[in-house]
């Protein structure tokens, strides 16, 4: 039998068997855990899944910003999470302080949509500005230079947030309808439905832009080879700016949705959610758009189930569970769920 072959080949085969057994045990364990929770309380199971998915769509919006930028200039834009945080603070100020809307109503919904457009524009402009002033000059520099710059920009944005929002968390009243849809013990808040209703079209729109438009084609070309793209007459600078704008706009929308559904802002939001979103992008295969969304939904769901199920490790283990799964996944599939192995461009 092949299991008893000696030497290098035998080791390889045995290792593959071991891996398969480990994966089966892990899968069985997870299914068993989900099963007993489902039997114990089906309503809590669905509730936890819904909470998880609604977090997942938020992560997806942010994760796309990481993956878009990485896809095109291979930079991990650490400042992206903080752009999301500033968008949340901007939205809170826009709706509550500048337009004095603190409760639901047609006028307030109008302000909500105005805010959605403004915050997307504002975040897009800020992101273009960051690229123009902090990253563009370093495009041909060693890879570490823009990386450190990104960390620096992240601190700058964080301190703007600290000045703007104050050192403590601030809570706000949502202008979205407060009710919920209930059936057989499961309740879906309207706010969750609205986040889906805003996020899904945005994701589709972005996917359409990247795959179907001329600008999208330019983006893909630039991602593949900047010099060749330039020779083909593509304005590379403008294409990169456009990519940053797209990522920024999605972070802006995420900021507004977070602020309105969770009702809170804090200057260190960007670090926490940015880290999770970045992880989603890596899990899905960094640079891959569908992968980022898939990774984000998966992480949201894992967190939701782990935090919300009656038999579970609970929220204090949330990050541990997410990152353990990430490490396992990376060990078996280093490119992420949908990522492809790319040879280093020379």
């Amino acid at each position: 039998m092949s299991l008893f072959i000696g030497g290098y080949q035998g080791r390889q085969i045995r290792r593959r068997y071991l891996e398969r057994i480990l994966i089966s045990v892990a899968t069985f364990g997870i299914l068993y855990w989900l099963g007993i929770n489902f039997i114990k309380s089906p309503s809590q199971f669905f509730q936890a899944s819904i909470i998880g998915l609604s977090n997942g769509v938020l992560y997806a919006l942010i994760a796309l910003g990481y993956t878009l930028v990485y896809g095109i200039i291979e930079l991990i834009n650490f400042a992206h999470g903080d752009l999301f945080m500033l968008s949340a603070v901007f939205s809170a100020n826009f709706i509550t302080i500048w337009f004095h809307k603190e409760s639901s109503g047609p006028a307030a919904w109008g302000v909500f949509f105005m805010c959605l457009v403004s915050v997307m524009l504002a975040a897009a402009s800020v992101n273009i500005g960051i690229e123009r002033f902090a990253y563009r000059r370093l495009r041909r520099a060693p890879k570490l230079a823009p990386l450190i710059t990104a960390v620096g920009v992240s601190f700058v944005l964080q301190f703007i947030g600290l000045r703007w929002n104050g050192s403590g968390p601030k809570t706000w009243n949502s202008v979205l309808p407060a009710g919920k849809l209930s059936f057989s013990g499961i309740s879906i808040p309207y706010t969750t439905m609205i986040s889906f209703a805003v996020t899904i079209p945005l994701l589709l729109l972005m996917s359409w832009i990247v795959t179907r438009t001329r600008q999208g084609k330019a983006m893909r070309a630039t991602a593949q080879d900047q010099d060749a793209a330039r020779l083909m007459g593509i304005n590379v600078d403008r294409t990169i700016s456009f990519t940053f704008a797209l990522g920024g706009a999605l972070a802006g929308a995420a900021g507004l949705l977070f602020q309105q559904t969770r009702g809170l802002t804090s200057y260190n939001l960007g670090y926490q959610l940015g880290l999770i979103a970045f992880t989603s992008a890596v899990m899905g295969g960094i640079g891959n758009l569908q992968g980022a969304v898939l990774g984000a939904l998966l992480i949201g769901l894992i967190q939701g189930l782990n935090d919300g199920l009656p038999i579970g490790l609970g929220q204090q283990w949330s990050q541990t569970v997410v990152f353990s799964i990430l490490i396992l996944l990376m060990a078996f599939k280093p490119t992420g769920l949908l990522g492809k192995a790319v040879t280093e461009k020379v």
Binding site: Q47, I51, N268, Q303, G308, Q315
Partner: peptide, 20 residues
């Protein structure tokens, strides 16, 4: 009983548990 680490930005899960 539940534990939610310092600096958490999302309390929806624990709120759902409290209500359940």
């Amino acid at each position: 009983k539940d534990s939610v680490p310092v600096n958490t930005s999302d309390y929806t899960s624990v709120v759902a548990k409290v209500k359940a």
